[in-house]
Amino acid sequence: MYISSESLIVILFVGLVAGWLAGKIVRGTGFGIIGDIVVGIAGAFVASFLFPKLGIHIGTGLVSEIIYSAIGAIVLLLVVRLVRSGGRF
């Protein structure tokens, strides 16, 4: 998978927004705003790689990228919470 420098900047920006949004949706993780943003950036990378491979297409443009990244960040926050709490929510 090749990521151009423009794509990387968009993924980072979208990851910031998605991390903040995921932190608001998934409460009680205890990561704070910086941790949620970092998880959001990681979720944006996962979503930008995984969703096209799975054939999931919501739309085009920046709004769909934010939705993809927010979904990826929410899933990642839930997985990290599950691992941190020892298998309990």
Rank of each mutant, 00 (worst) to 15 (best):
V38I: 15
I56Y: 00
G72L: 09
I3Q: 07
G35Q: 03
H57N: 12
I74N: 00
V10L: 06
E65S: 07
L78G: 10
I66F: 06
G59D: 06
G28N: 12
I37P: 03
G87W: 06
L76R: 07
R27Y: 07
F49V: 11
V39G: 03
V38R: 08
G23Y: 02
G23L: 06
I66V: 15
G86H: 14
V63A: 14
G59P: 08
I58S: 00
F31D: 03
S69K: 00
R81V: 05
I58L: 15
I74S: 00
G72R: 00
S85L: 12
E65V: 05
L16N: 03
A44F: 05
G15E: 05
A18S: 12
G86T: 14
F49P: 00
I58M: 12
L16V: 15
G72M: 06
L76Q: 09
S7V: 03
V63E: 09
G15I: 04
H57L: 11
I37F: 04
F45P: 06
G43C: 10
G35T: 07
E6I: 13
V83A: 15
L16K: 06
A47D: 07
L77V: 09
M1R: 10
A42Y: 01
A22L: 03
V14Q: 01
F31C: 03
L82Y: 15
